[in-house]
Amino acid sequence: MGKNLVGNHIRRLRFNHDEMTQQQLADKVGVTRQTIVALEKGNYSPSLELAFRIAHAFDLPLEEVFFYGDNT
């Protein structure tokens, strides 16, 4: 299974938000911890709705949490 083209900064943002745990973020956005793990590993591209919920959880615009393609 190839890596998804939609990347994210979720891991870094969690640490910048008082070292928020995966479970805390999962509870905040209404998914399971497994989904946060898959997102951080780049194994899953979230739905638009979930992407917005995650961005809202960090109080950031969508494009500061997610990016398309290579962001290096």
Partner: peptide, 9 residues
């Protein structure tokens, strides 16, 4: 254990 199935599940 998770009590619900989310979009990935």
């Amino acid at each position: 254990e998770p009590k619900f199935a989310d979009e990935l599940d």
